[in-house]
């Protein structure tokens, strides 16, 4: 790989690959989110609060 003169372009010389199993987890979460969004759209506009339990890195009481 040719080195770029801009050092910001060379910060990550060994790019990592995301494990393939993450795709299934994301798509499962997306399917649940999609269902929640469809259902909650019928009764409320606050679907984000209904989805807070799906996140790993955000505390439930911080989601907005």
């Amino acid at each position: 790989m040719q080195k770029n003169s801009n050092p910001f372009k060379n910060l990550n010389t060994k790019p990592k690959q995301l494990p393939v199993e993450i795709r299934k987890k994301v798509m499962d979460d997306v399917a649940i989110a999609s269902l929640f969004m469809d259902l909650t759209f019928l009764v409320t506009d606050s679907y984000p609060s209904a989805l807070k339990g799906l996140f790993k890195t955000i505390d439930s009481n911080e989601f907005n």
């Binding site: 987890k25 994301v26 979460d29 997306v30 989110a33 999609s34 799906l54 996140f55 890195t57």
Partner: peptide, 11 residues
């Protein structure tokens, strides 16, 4: 983080 970002991206 990646998993959460893609979920939030969908939303």
């Amino acid at each position: 983080l990646t998993q959460d970002i893609f979920l939030l991206l969908y939303i």
